[in-house]
Design a protein around this nucleic acid. Structure first.
Ligand code: ZN
Ligand code: ZN
Length: 736
DNA sequence: AGCACGCCGACT
DNA sequence: GTCGGCGTGCTC
């Protein structure tokens, strides 16, 4: 007997092995196999009696790892679909579905936090390493700042580097490890009292009445629930999940990573006894623990981000995708899958219902209700007749003119902040930019400090007096004078959260203001701690980035300020308007969740932009009508399927040559007249980490065409020069 | 992706 | 002379 084995490598073919006589092997079991001169763990895709192709010297399987399959038929079918649709190998698709199962590592029982070994000499050590080993110096600086709070994994993620620098620092004994027993089930700590289900509004009741029969029938039924913020979408999910759980089945709830807050988890734990929470921060051992629980049908509800879609639930009865429009559901590395669309596929394979929910559905999803691929259910009113918050748009051009100087805060925002704080109420201020100043500019010649490795403006961070590139994380000493014209007065222009925090603390010295962004939220428990203090009223103003835009529900928050609504608008992407609309509606939804009516202040330099004007009134349909018209005119999704080829390399000429070659090949295809090829052209960010970036965007009028060309491109890309990184993105979300 | 082999420049 | 850079090719 022989086995066809998929390996977690970027190799599209399966590999054949002979099965030792004494082994029983079934599809979906893992095997340890010899591969070149190393061993690999793979998944058995099928067993066959004979192999026709005898070109290879067939090796024998070392060991069958499982006694029963870790991948069932449905999951294997999903993996096959993913590998075909998103053009990755079957092994890569399987690896994202069963993380750590295909790695030859054992799970450690402890977590290692990194510490500085010798504090006295640390400054000079950093100094010494700076020139020869800048990576190691950066690691030391980070550990110095958060001594004993970071794991090797989190440092690698933050600095975007590999483990090697940390390894050498440990070897040199400049760093040491502190081992801590890990809590195998971290979310178990959230203890809650069960609460009674709330009364449904008439609107909610009618939707639930429509959905419950489908939950009982257990057939493929894709529903899009569109409801304004505060209209009680969650309660609709809850009722449907209850129905499914009562029938001894389980549900998966996907939420965007940033919405996976303790509050969100609590809300589900209040209603369901067996809630499993998956999270990207879990260690392998912790994830494995949840995985085993789910495999044994011990979890009724599984909540998690993107990857939770692959929870190995054998008795799956429902999938819910909350905030369905969120870009974080799309993975930005191989396999570049969209968890929302893959969830629909999983529901289809398992023949179960799926609910997509959003206050601001993606245009693609709404379009799918027009073409009857999805069923639309709309909630127009907020529960308990709570009014939508009152939104004011402030024209910052006018504001600056009246002040006769550049200002970050409008008078109305400051007055309303003062008024809310005086009444003992709380406020949330939102700005989606980290750091202190967003650019270092020369007032005389217009010079703009850029990263040496990327074509990106540096952001000034006050804390360490460094200018940081947010794309490669490299830090620079800010120039004292202009390197071009020697002008000594460099402008620290543009505001990030650090600058706003500083200014707020000056204006409101009596109040407690806390900044929440990825620079301050380092170390375990920080995030939960701030949220709980905010909930208790110990914090007056919470200032933050994306992190505070979702999943937070604080009744005493009566004012929400968007410092600049223009950040998303400036991104060179055809979805910029959609993102801006979604952001304003989401952030505004944080206001007025209690008894007191909420207020929202939106500061912008484009007060007349349709995305902002429609967002003020939460007028999704007017926005939709306008935006759909635009997309139709320029032939973008949902009226076309997109493919994007990104070519990256250190030698720009090679990158250009390759992009031209791919473009030429495309134009020679017999269906070429049915597609539109944009580019090749430099990507909006044309250099990152010393790699030049050029791309091609292909617009296809049908799924069939996009499938044809994704397969075609895959074949063309095999001939790419080895020094280049050429990647294909099917249904891209970001074109940067 | 790894990991070998192999071919060239710059060091003791 | 060798050490080490990375370009190329292969993995059942
Ligand atoms: Zn950079
Ligand atoms: Zn200058």
């Amino acid at each position: 007997m022989y086995a066809q084995v998929a390996l977690p490598l970027p190799l599209k073919q399966l590999f054949s092995y002979s099965i030792p006589e004494d082994c029983t092997l079934e599809t979906g079991m893992r095997v340890k196999v010899p591969f070149g001169r190393r061993t690999q763990i793979g998944v058995c895709i099928e067993t066959v009696a004979q192999i026709e192709n005898t070109k290879f010297r067939i090796k024998s399987i070392h060991e069958v790892i499982d006694t029963k399959p870790v991948i069932d038929c449905a999951m294997l079918e999903l993996a096959k679909w993913m590998s075909q649709y998103y053009r990755c190998s079957l092994g890569e698709a399987l690896e994202t579905m069963v993380p750590s199962f295909l790695q030859q590592k054992s799970y450690s029982k402890t977590i290692a936090y990194l510490q500085i070994a010798a504090h006295e000499e640390i400054e000079q050590q950093i100094e010494q390493l700076q020139t020869k080993f800048p990576l190691q110096a950066r690691v030391l600086k980070l550990v110095r700042e958060f001594d004993g709070e970071l794991t090797a994994k989190s440092i690698c993620n933050r600095l975007g580097i590999s483990r090697s620098a940390i390894k050498t620092l440990l070897k040199k004994e400049l760093l040491c490890e502190r081992f801590e027993e890990q809590n195998i089930n971290p979310f178990d700590e959230i203890e809650v009292e069960k609460v009674e289900k709330p009364q449904l509004s008439r609107e909610q009741q009618s939707i639930v009445n429509n959905l419950l029969p489908v939950m009982r029938e257990q057939r493929f039924f894709p529903a899009l629930v569109h409801g304004v913020t505060g209209s009680g979408k969650t309660e609709i999910y809850m009722r449907c999940i209850e129905e499914v759980v009562d029938n001894k089945r389980a549900a998966i709830v996907l939420v965007p990573e940033i919405a996976l807050t303790p509050q969100t988890v609590t809300r589900f734990k209040q209603r369901f006894a067996n809630v499993a929470v998956l999270h990207s921060e879990l260690t392998n051992a912790q994830r494995n623990f949840q995985w085993q629980n789910i495999l044994q049908n011990k979890a009724d509800v599984i909540i998690g981000p993107r990857s939770a879609l692959f929870a190995p639930v054998s008795n799956l009865g429902l999938i819910v995708v909350d905030e369905e429009h969120e870009p974080s559901f799309k993975q930005q590395n191989t396999p570049r899958y969209n968890a929302r669309d893959s969830a629909v596929k999983r529901a289809q394979i398992s023949d179960i219902p799926i609910i997509l929910g959003s206050a601001t559905p993606a245009l693609e999803s709404y379009y799918n209700t027009d073409t009857d691929k999805y069923n639309l259910f709309a909630l127009h009113q907020r529960v308990g007749d709570k009014k939508l918050p009152h939104v004011s748009v402030i024209d910052m051009k006018e504001e600056c003119r009246d002040h006769k100087k550049f200002v970050y805060f409008s008078r109305i925002l400051l007055n309303d902040l003062r008024a809310a704080l005086d009444k003992g109420q709380q406020a949330i201020l939102f700005l989606n930019r980290r750091g202190f100043a967003t650019s270092l500019t020369c007032p005389q010649c217009g010079y703009n400090a850029k990263c040496d490795n990327c074509n990106i403006a540096l952001t000034y961070h006050k804390k360490h007096h460094t200018a940081i590139c947010h794309y490669c994380n490299y830090d620079y000493i800010p120039p004292k004078s202009c390197p071009v014209c020697s002008c000594p007065a460099i402008l620290y222009a543009g505001a990030g959260t650090q600058k706003i925090e500083m200014m707020l603390k000056k204006i409101f010295p009596e109040n407690n203001i806390v900044r929440m962004d990825s620079d301050t939220m380092v170390g375990k428990g920080k995030y939960e701690d701030v949220l709980s203090r905010f909930g208790k009223g110990e914090i007056d103003i919470l200032l933050g980035t994306q992190m505070i835009a979702k999943g937070l529900d604080f009744p005493n928050v009566t004012l929400v300020g968007i410092i600049s609504a223009d950040t998303a608008l400036q991104v060179p992407d055809f979805r910029a308007a959609e993102r801006t609309f979604q952001l304003i509606v989401q952030v505004a939804g944080r206001s007025g969740r209690g008894e007191v009516a909420g207020k929202v202040i939106v500061q912008t330099y484009h007060p007349d932009h349709y995305a902002i004007q429609t967002a003020i009134h939460q007028d999704y349909h007017s926005f939709l009508k306008y935006e759909m018209g635009q997309r139709k005119d320029i032939g973008y999704p949902p009226f076309a399927k997109l493919l994007r080829v990104l070519i990256q390399g250190e030698k720009e000429q090679l990158v250009i040559d390759e992009s031209l070659r791919i473009s030429r090949c495309l134009r020679q295809d017999k269906y070429a007249k049915n597609i539109q090829i944009l580019g090749p052209a430099p990507a909006p960010i044309d250099r990152i980490k010393n790699r030049y970036r050029h791309h091609l965007i292909i617009k296809c009028q049908s799924v069939q065409l996009s499938m044809h060309f994704s397969v075609f491109l895959d074949r063309i890309m095999e001939d790419s020069h080895k020094s280049l990184r050429v990647s294909l993105d099917v249904d891209p979300i970001s074109l940067v």
